[in-house]
């Protein structure tokens, strides 16, 4: 068996376990369930860790996999609870807030699916409030590259969010 790079895997785990749990919580609303889902996803990743190219977008993969597992989980739970006599009202959220929550989760997946460098540039500018010049200095790249990465981030987000963009107008109006 080819030796898998456990250290790289551990780094990935330590870096993303918490954000992924936070993300899963947006679906399942229970920390233990969220942790269980994220653990399963890491186990699944480990099984093919040596077959994936080294520059794979693990972050994107992990967020998508957690999302899918959460959706399956909710589907199973729904099936299960429809068998019992759970009070209907408890599960029903208002339409609008459900859409808002879904949009929020889709955006989170879309951002985390950006290629690593691109995501980092976008995050430094939008989250940390760094100017293009500051981002360029911090990453040791040219301002031109920052411009290109920012535009790539926008184009990819637009492509990925597709029909959800309509919702954004709706939400902000």
């Amino acid at each position: 068996m080819a030796a898998k790079n456990l250290q790289a895997f551990e780094t990935l785990f330590r870096q993303l376990f918490k954000p992924l749990c936070g993300f899963a919580m947006k679906y399942v609303r229970d920390l233990d369930e969220a942790k269980g889902i994220v653990h399963d996803v890491f186990i699944q990743l480990w099984e093919k860790f040596d077959q994936l190219p080294e520059d794979s977008n693990y972050r994107g993969y992990l967020f998508t996999a957690v999302r899918n597992r959460c959706l399956n989980h909710l589907r199973d739970r729904k099936k299960f609870s429809s068998l019992s006599d759970a009070p209907e009202g408890a599960r029903i959220e208002e339409n609008r807030s459900m859409e808002a929550a879904e949009l929020e989760r889709e955006i989170e997946v879309a951002i985390n699916m950006l290629p690593e460098r691109c995501r980092l540039v976008f995050e430094m500018n939008r989250q940390d409030g760094l100017s293009y010049i500051q981002v360029a200095e911090k990453l040791g790249i040219s301002v031109k590259t920052v411009e290109a990465q920012m535009s790539k981030a926008l184009a990819l987000l637009r492509e990925r969010l597709g029909e959800f963009l309509v919702l954004i107008i709706f939400m902000s109006s």
Partner: peptide, 14 residues
């Protein structure tokens, strides 16, 4: 406007 929405989506997330 499409790109602006994508941009807003990012800000909303952060």
């Amino acid at each position: 406007q499409d790109l602006e929405k994508a941009f807003d989506a990012g800000d909303r997330y952060y």
